[in-house]
Design a protein around this nucleic acid. Structure first.
Length: 618
DNA sequence: GCCGTTTTCGGCCCGACTGTTTTCAGTCG
């Protein structure tokens, strides 16, 4: 039972940015179904997106009497935010919901059903829900409506079925596996010059809906027919001379776009997106007298319409770099194309030098079979060495995480002896020139660390004198994840403030499409991490990706250092660090902010410099 | 509903595919 003894707070907590964004998106959808002016709907969706991505809590700012200038939020939506913050309600929203039931809005999710269809169904035969629609379609009641036939009924039923079995979005790593398979299956098609991924996969979003492929080819029909004929295709959604769409068996929809040879520049930009990024580019093109589409830049006449023949002028480009250059922009890395300031940065020539996988010199978070890993310490170290790393930090769990067979103080001491012995061997091999070729000049060392459990009562699993003996300490929360924010913050602060904790691992504690984030006051976490000189992790495990992109960006803005780690539990997972790099790049992170791009000596000096540390024993 | 060193009003990104309404609307990306 919920504890109801506490009296209600005088001020209700303000809505979070996520809640505000959800409300304005929903308003946009309800207005769509109502048949409102399309630009009005768009305005609500645009404002909702801007709110969702805003770095500070807007509700709190309003409570404090501040009105951050958010692009896309004008006076009307500002007033609505005010009302929501002050009263917890929005009369306009409540009225709309009474008029357009949420179950009706949900029909928009059905593939092939848009706002006009929903409006028609509602107004003519009173459809209010998915179940209503299914029954009406099955009973053949839709064919009497304008523009609908038996075929429409069948396609709506198929859409409902597709919706029901439409799985969750793919993890980035799952998407990569499918893209790789498709590229291999389509390679060698006659006329095909290249087949490259685009869309949110290329932008490295953490989850992927549909997959987009671009085929640069002299023979469009051949590649379309090859794709639609693949045995892994469940159904063909559409197939023309410019594009084709299929759904894979137990897999995502795949959209294939045909690119004329030598004109890939604007095609790659267009189909990589994001939509918001493209809208900005088109606006810029229009301001300069051109209409931008995937085909290229089309010269506009004085009336703002494309010039007809003769005089029509289409400019195409073989590369993205040239196509961006036409607008005076430098090449924008795909990970940044979200209209989060990248266009302004490109105009000013101030795009960040995003961190690259090759710049990582070590991994600060790895496990072995001493706790919950699969491979031995030696196997893990050898795998890291073959990657060309200068170091790997072995961070098996501490004892209170019993489910992961966390190590006791005694086991830690035994483990250290093994680490020392391995390092002696590595040093010997480097001295005699028998180390792996990939070894860096500084050689490879296995550093001894731990993944220190932050317990439910905010106590840390090892005392300071034990912690002081580790090279690097990574701390994290695994248990009692649903505590109130105050308690969770106390635990995180306990770790950040310990002079012996160097890195806070997977700070949000989420599992993508599994577990929600810990309820933390993020601005306070970043501020304290920056103040104490504790590093925050970008965990590359494909279902974690934690910190997420926007958080990594905000943390660095507030002066935090990051570590990009694999959290590998087997040798093959060392490569997961590349997903962490992808997230960091989406977060505008540059190498100097990432501690594991530094040399081993620099890393160890940084660890030693944290104020208040006990000297390491012996 | 938002926005503006061209604009405080009149714009707001562009094209392919599908089905069917024999000339285009709806949906999607």
């Amino acid at each position: 039972m919920t504890d109801r003894r506490a009296s209600p707070p005088a001020n209700p907590p303000p809505p979070t940015n996520g809640e505000l964004a959800r409300i304005f998106h929903e308003i946009g959808e309800m207005l769509e179904v109502k048949g409102e002016l399309v630009f009005k709907n768009m305005a609500y969706h645009r404002a909702a997106d801007a709110i969702a991505h805003w770095p500070e809590e807007i509700g709190r700012a309003y409570q404090e009497g501040r009105r951050p200038r958010i692009p896309g939020v004008g006076s009307a939506i500002e007033k609505k935010i005010e009302e929501l913050v002050a009263t917890g309600h929005l009369a306009f929203y409540d009225r709309l919901r009474a008029e357009v039931p949420p179950s009706l809005v949900a029909l928009l999710e059905i593939p092939g059903v848009g706002p006009r269809t929903v409006k028609l169904l509602h107004e003519t035969i009173g459809i209010e829900s998915l179940e209503d629609l299914r029954r009406a379609a099955e009973a053949g009641h839709l064919r009497s409506l304008r523009g609908m036939t038996e075929k429409t009924e069948a396609s709506i039923l198929a859409g409902i079925e597709a919706l029901a079995r439409r799985g969750q979005r793919l993890l980035l790593s799952e998407a990569e596996a499918i893209v790789g398979t498709l590229q291999a299956e389509l390679a060698g098609t006659p006329g095909l010059r290249s087949i490259l991924p685009a869309g949110s996969f290329r932008r490295r979003r953490e989850t992927i809906g549909d997959l987009d492929l671009l085929a640069e080819t002299d023979d469009p029909a051949a590649i379309v027919s090859r794709l639609t004929g693949l045995p892994s295709v469940e159904s063909v959604i559409g197939a023309g001379v410019h594009k084709a769409s299929v759904r894979l068996l137990r897999g995502p929809q795949v959209d294939l776009m045909i690119v004329p040879p030598g004109e890939a520049g604007t095609y790659r930009i267009h189909f990589t997106g994001s939509r918001e990024h493209n809208v900005r580019l088109r606006g810029m093109a229009r301001d300069r007298g051109w209409s931008l589409s995937e085909k290229g830049y089309l010269r506009l006449g004085p009336d703002g319409e494309p010039l007809g023949e003769p005089g029509a002028e289409l400019r195409t480009f073989p590369t993205e770099e040239a196509a961006y250059g036409f607008l005076g922009l430098s090449l924008i890395p795909p990970e940044l194309r979200e209209d989060r300031g990248e266009i302004e940065a490109a105009l000013a020539g101030r795009l960040p030098a995003l961190v690259r996988l090759e710049e990582l010199r070590g991994d600060c978070h790895t496990h072995s079979d001493w706790s919950d890993g699969v491979h031995t310490i030696e196997q893990m170290a050898e795998a890291a060495r073959r990657r060309g790393y200068a170091y790997q930090v072995l961070t098996d769990h501490s004892f209170s995480l019993a489910i992961a067979r966390g190590l006791t103080v005694e086991r830690v001491a035994e483990q250290r002896a093994l680490v020392d012995a391995l390092n002696a061997r590595f040093a010997g091999e480097e001295a005699t020139g028998t180390a792996p070729e990939a070894s860096p000049p500084e050689g490879f060392r296995l550093l001894h660390g731990c993944e220190l459990e932050i317990r439910a009562d905010a106590a840390l699993d090892f005392p300071d004198e034990v912690l002081a003996a580790f090279d690097v300490v990574v701390a994290s929360v695994h248990v009692a994840r649903r505590q109130p924010r105050e308690q969770l913050m106390a635990r995180v602060f306990a770790a950040l403030r310990s002079p012996h904790v160097d890195i806070l691992a997977h700070p949000a504690g989420r599992m993508i499409q599994g577990r929600d984030d810990l309820d933390l006051d993020w601005e306070a976490v970043y501020a304290e991490a920056a103040r104490t000189g504790t590093c925050l992790e970008v965990n590359g495990s494909p279902h974690r990706l934690d910190l997420a992109d926007l958080r990594a960006r905000r943390a660095v803005e507030l002066g935090c250092r990051l570590a990009i780690d694999s959290d590998a539990h087997r040798t093959g997972e060392l490569d997961d660090v590349r997903w962490g790099v992808a997230v960091a790049r989406r977060g505008w992170v540059e190498a100097p902010s990432v501690v594991n791009t530094w040399s081993r000596a620099e890393l160890l000096a940084w660890v030693a410099a944290k104020p208040g540390r006990l000297a390491a024993a012996g």
